[in-house]
Amino acid sequence: MASQNLQSVPAELSPEEQEREAAGQAYFDRIISEDSRIEPRDWMPAAYRKTLLRQISQHAHSEIIGMQPEANWITRAPSLKRKSILMAKVQDEAGHGLYLYSAAETLGQSRDQMMEDLIAGKARYSSIFNYPTISWADMGAIGWLVDGAAICNQVPLCRASYGPYGRAMVRICKEESFHQRQGFEILLELANGTPAQKQMAQDAVNRWYAPSLMMFGPPDDDSPNSKQSMAWNIKRFSNDELRSRFVGMMVEQVRVLGLTLPDEDIRFNEETKKWEHGPLDWNEFKEVLAGRGPCNSQRVERRREAHENGAWVREAAVAYARKQAQKENAA
C-alpha cells in the first residue's frame, strides 16, 4: 500500500534526534497556523505525509482511470469539433495525472510503484468512473456534473498546505473549468435539439446526478479523516458543505439547460442558508467502492493491459538512453 515507502519513525530517538523532531514539529505547526505552505524538504509529521500521499495518488489514479469512460466516445463523437474538444479534454486528464503523480513523488513514492498499486487493485480512484458511458450525452453530463463536482472539491485545494499539491491544482482547475463548460455546452445543444437528443440529455443527467453528489465523499458524520485533513489545511470544507454548494449551483444551471435534476427534495433551507437534497444511496456507493460497480474490473484491466503492453517500449527507451550515455562517456 501507499505507506510502504514511508520512513518509519524509530521507536527510540536519541536526545539529539528528539530535539530535531521537536523543532520540526514546531516549524510545521507554525506554518500551518500561518496558513502558509509546507515544501517537500520541510519536516512534516509521518501521518501528514501518509494522508497526502494517499489523497494525491488517489487523485492521480482518478484522472488516469477517468480517461477511459470519455475515451470511449472519441472515435464516435458526432461532429469534428466535438471530437477535437473531447480529445483535448481526455489528453488534459493524462496531463493532470502526470502533475499529480509528480506531486506525489515529492513525498517519496515512485510513479512506477503507484501504477503497480493501481493495477494490482490496491489503490483507490474516484468510484464514479466505474459507471459506463452509454450515450453521447454522457460526455455532457460528465463534463457538467462530474467535472463540476470535481471543481467544487478542487478549487479549495489550490490553497492546500502542501505546496506541490496546491500548485498542481491551480493548473488543473483552470483546465477543469474548460471541461465543465464544454460539458454544459454539449447538454445545452442536446437540450435544444431534436426530441430524441433532449431525451438523451435528460437520461444522462438522471444517471450521473446521484453519483456526482457522492463524489464529495460520505456524509460528515461518517467521514473519519476529514477533521484531521481540515486541521492540516489540506481540506478546507466538509463533504456536506461542498455537496450543498454544488447542489445550489446545479439547480441554477439546470434551468438554463431546460432539463431537470432527478431529485424532488432539493430545497434551500432558509434557516441554515444551505441547499439540501434528497437521500443518496450510500449502500450503492460502498458497493461500487468495494469493486462491485458496473465497470470496476474493465477499468483496471484496461490500465493493466496498456501498462503491460507498453513494457517493451519503456524498456527500449531505458536501454537506448543507457547506450547513448555510454557512447557519450566513451567519447
Binding site: 480517461m67 472515435t75 480529445m87 481526455v90 489528453q91 503492453n309 519503456r314
Partner: peptide, 17 residues
C-alpha cells in the same frame, strides 16, 4: 485517437493525442 488511454506511458498518451 484510439491510443488515448492505451499508450505505453502517460507521456505517449499525451503525445499521440
Amino acid at each position: 485517437g484510439h491510443w488515448i488511454s492505451r499508450a505505453p506511458e502517460l507521456e505517449e498518451d499525451i503525445a499521440l493525442g
